[in-house]
Amino acid sequence: MNNNINIGHPTSKDHHSKKLNIYFTAGIPKLNDTIEILKIIQKSGADYVEIGMPYSDPVADGPVIQKAHEVALKNGMTIAGLLGQLKSVKNEMDIPIILMGYINPVLRFGFEEFCKECNDSGVSGLIIPDLPPVEFEKNYRKILEENNLNFIFLVTPETSDKRIKYLDSLSSGFLYAVSSSSTTGNNTKEINNEEYLDRLSKLGLKNPVMIGFGIKNKADFESVTEKAAGGIIGTAFVNILMNNEDWAKPAEDFIRSIQN
């Protein structure tokens, strides 16, 4: 079990050193597939795994991942169920696990209890896009630190330099740089927004930057990681899980194709 998100700032343009984070929604295609998917992601050479906690109104996500949330909820996936699955396999996982979700179901679960359970289940960090940073600082930061959990904020091309530095100061592990203002999975021409990536690289940020939203293949991954520590792939991977009855081999082949 590896609870440490240690990405490090990129020191060269060696793409083999760029970190790959694979996202999928817990509870798809079937309720109990999560563990097998986790093991495939680890075996295939990804550096991190980001697991979506299903929610009925995933506003930051595009139609593919929205559909995945819907399927997962119909399958009966819950936060408690996911944490139980993770706990059962935590001693077999060597790559950090990050949970991505929305604040309402976490508050219903109980924030402090949720963080304790995450720590017990081998989770390394959280991404909660709709948790305001002021609330994070005031009410939640200490709880996360007490439970050895990183917290990762998102920035976009429209985020001001001042706010980027503020969110970077609150984040640990890495800073999640959304490649455009769209939702996940959109076909955006901003995937290689050089001005944006240049701006991020020149801000002297505390955390390494991981780029997400819209990365579909090796070419996209190499393009966005020219000036970032790594990339996050979600929609393209979720599509494989959702659209292939025998998804295990295509999922493994896809991950291997990104960095090989």
Rank of each mutant, 00 (worst) to 15 (best):
M1D: 06
N4L: 08
G8Q: 10
H9V: 11
P10G: 00
S12T: 15
K13F: 12
K13R: 08
S17Q: 08
N21V: 11
I22L: 03
Y23C: 01
F24V: 08
A26F: 04
P29A: 01
P29M: 12
P29L: 04
L31V: 06
L31R: 11
T34L: 15
T34N: 11
E36R: 13
I37G: 02
L38I: 14
I41H: 04
K43T: 02
Y48L: 15
Y48R: 02
V49A: 04
V49H: 00
V49R: 03
G52C: 05
G52Q: 07
G52E: 09
Y55C: 13
S56I: 13
S56Y: 13
A60G: 08
A60R: 09
G62Q: 11
P63A: 09
V64A: 03
I65P: 04
E70P: 04
V71W: 06
K74L: 10
A80Q: 07
L83F: 06
G84E: 05
K87Y: 03
S88C: 10
V89H: 01
V89T: 15
E92R: 05
E92D: 12
D94R: 04
D94N: 06
P96S: 13
I97A: 02
L99R: 09
G101H: 14
G101P: 14
G101V: 12
G101L: 13
I103H: 08
I103W: 08
N104C: 10
L107A: 00
F111V: 14
F114E: 05
C115H: 00
E117Y: 11
E117I: 10
N119H: 11
N119F: 02
D120L: 15
D120E: 15
G122N: 14
P129Y: 10
V134H: 14
E135A: 12
F136I: 11
E137T: 11
N139P: 09
R141D: 01
R141Y: 06
R141M: 03
K142R: 09
N147V: 03
L149P: 08
N150W: 01
I152A: 05
I152Y: 02
F153P: 02
T156H: 10
P157W: 05
D161L: 04
K162W: 01
R163P: 07
K165W: 05
S169Q: 11
S172H: 07
F174T: 05
F174L: 05
L175A: 06
L175F: 06
Y176N: 07
S181C: 08
S181T: 13
S182A: 12
N187H: 06
E190D: 09
E190G: 02
I191W: 14
N192T: 15
N193S: 07
Y196W: 04
L197H: 15
R199Q: 12
R199D: 15
R199L: 10
G204H: 04
L205G: 06
L205S: 07
K206Y: 09
P208T: 07
I211K: 05
I215N: 02
A219S: 15
D220H: 15
D220G: 10
S223P: 14
V224H: 03
E226G: 02
E226V: 11
E226M: 05
G231L: 12
I233E: 09
F237I: 14
F237G: 07
V238N: 01
I240E: 10
L241E: 02
M242C: 04
N243Y: 05
P250K: 00
F254E: 07
I255E: 07
R256F: 02
I258E: 01
Q259M: 03
N260R: 09
N260D: 12
